[in-house]
Design a protein around this nucleic acid. Structure first.
Lengths: 349, 349
DNA sequence: GTGAAAGCGCTAACAT
DNA sequence: ATGTTAGCGCTTTCAC
């Protein structure tokens, strides 16, 4: 009622932000009316609304989310915990998650766990535990969930990506098995007597899943099952194994567990003077943007990461907002994209 | 003092979370003491502390960040606004930002802006405006800052990545000019009479910067400046331009503004039967993980995205916590990584 | 070493 | 259509 402008009359801008009370003062209304305007309620006179809006603008009012959350008990925010952003799949999934949650009016809080040691994970969880989030998405290799007893946060909805914990948690995953089977059968159908596998690390759930399905498919077809070669997803590991495979003349078909290793394999093949697909066919997994421009363009299994992200947020928000879903696994299909890196088996010598 | 366990005695878990008061009740102390324990203050008797800790555990107490923020006026959170996660550079930068801010005890709030239209940006900013963040990092093409008058959030520290707005804002960027110059000179020094450029989109600040430095370097060396070919960062656009360049016999050296376009160019060259680097040398920009496994391994400009992210958070937190820095630009060096895609110019016909 | 009181900015519930 | 009251969970201040 008196000198409202004196509030910020210090030299440097005050740290204290403009509150509803300030706006109310300035506009000569109650803070409740300001609240109504701020929330777009209809029961405010147009003239009053304009006056309040004007005051908001001049004062530079920004609603305080903390206060709002304190009142409502909701944060409108989803926490994402992940080991690394730096894989194609994680990045794509995160992108989709971000888009989907933004569309639903939720903000994303990132919780990276740089070193997946037991301590780091527990630490991340306990930190996440006190974050202002309404739900959590966990993106990582499932084995850490298996062989440890650290506590996942309780009393808060959780969705896990890339795991087999579907009996205990809500899980969303791509159809690893379908992809690996289709890839292997594609090669077999092309007349290759068997298919070699450059696998992902044994610690990875999806790598294990691709490996076992490759093995089963081979067995079902009555083909020999060569010893798998374990890589670490990197082009270098693919290159190393590729060099080894290039040296053997009984290798005509290779299924790599991701595109990067496939790229490394192909580089090794090129360097060894083996023709692709003339001598050896190569299939990858992921269908990264680049894979269609590899030399030769790579036959690979397409994963719909965007759909994974979407499903994941849909399930999570469902749980948050009460449309509850029990634990269970949602599987997003994969499909084989045939390009130029695969062809008929060479005539036998 | 009475039946504290009755609090949650409903069938399904109550939405209301365990408060300090609950813990205080359970432990038979004041909530003030619980607060002290929760914040690790020392002036609490060991026995009391243990009792409180035990109560926290049994009750499953989680501090409420909203209340804490409401009191302190701080959110310990940094907002990141970006157009897309799905580029190598953005992803790497975000990764570094996440790591750096986690180390500093800050949480990251993601604000994706899917469609960089004017409306979307303003909308994102006004939404961001009311987010619970202490500072903002903006990662995107600079032109949107140039030719529009939408308001950046006010009264909150901002750091911009990949921009030339250093006079108005705090900016962190990689040394685009150094990279483009080194790449071009590398080719010139190899005896190539000139260097063709597959540029990024004209709307991108870094693309424009690489283009202009390429041009200047050529001019300074007295070399012809061919018409640049504009791509959109994608392998396909590189492929298209590569096809065109492969058809001209006066092309011996190509500088692509990123690795993906370089990959596309190389595919086109392979398909056209041109040898790399025998007939044509190719240089990229970024040094993605895959580029060392391209065929042939790509000579490219390495960008230290991790350092960009680190610097960015350092500057931002400096501003947030008062160690103020005026507007200005921090430049992170780049360096050329020479691999097998570049070689001496072929003897002239 | 511990407790009581006040209030951060907001909104739900209840006036008027 | 607008105002008043109370209180969300926490921390700061001051008392003991």
């Amino acid at each position: 009622m008196t000198d409202v402008d004196a509030i910020d009359a210090t030299d440097r801008p005050s740290r204290r932000s403009v509150s509803m009370a300030d706006v109310a003062n300035h506009a000569g209304v109650s803070s409740q009316t300001v609240s109504r305007v701020s929330n777009g309620k209809t029961n405010v006179d147009d003239a009053t609304r304009e006056r309040v809006l004007a005051s908001m603008r001049t004062l530079g009012y920004r609603p305080n989310r903390a206060a709002r959350s304190l009142k409502s008990g909701r944060f409108k925010s989803i926490g994402v915990i992940m080991f690394t952003l730096s894989t194609f799949g994680n990045m794509r999934t995160l992108d989709a998650i971000a888009t989907a949650s933004a569309a639903a009016g939720y903000t994303l809080t990132l919780m990276p766990v740089p070193h997946p040691t037991q301590g780091a994970i527990s630490g991340a969880f306990s930190r996440l535990n006190e974050q202002a989030v309404d739900g959590i998405v966990i993106i990582f290799e499932a084995h850490v969930l298996d062989d440890s007893d650290f506590a996942l946060p309780r009393g808060i909805p959780i969705v896990i990506i890339d795991s087999d914990a579907g009996d205990r948690y809500t899980v969303v995953d791509t159809d690893q098995a379908l992809g690996a089977r289709t890839a292997t059968e594609h090669l077999l159908n092309l007349g290759h007597r068997t298919v070699w596998h450059v696998a992902g690390p044994a610690s990875s759930f999806s790598a294990r899943r691709r490996l076992s399905t490759w093995r089963e498919t081979l067995t079902a077809a009555g083909a020999d099952v060569p010893e798998p070669l374990y890589g670490d997803w990197s082009t270098e590991s693919g290159y190393r194994h590729g060099l080894e495979l290039a040296g053997r003349d009984d290798v005509t078909a290779i299924f790599a567990a991701n595109d990067q290793m496939a790229l490394g394999v192909m580089r090794a093949l090129h360097e060894s003077g083996r023709s692709i697909p003339g001598d050896i066919s190569v299939v990858g997994f992921d269908d990264t943007d680049e894979s269609k421009s590899f030399w030769p363009p790579l036959t690979t299994v397409h994963q719909d990461f965007a759909e994974v992200g979407r499903q994941c947020i849909e399930k999570l928000i469902g749980e948050i907002e009460g449309t509850h879903e029990s634990p269970g696994t949602t599987i997003v299909p994969t499909r084989l994209v045939v390009r130029d890196s695969t062809g008929p088996a060479p005539a036998r010598s």
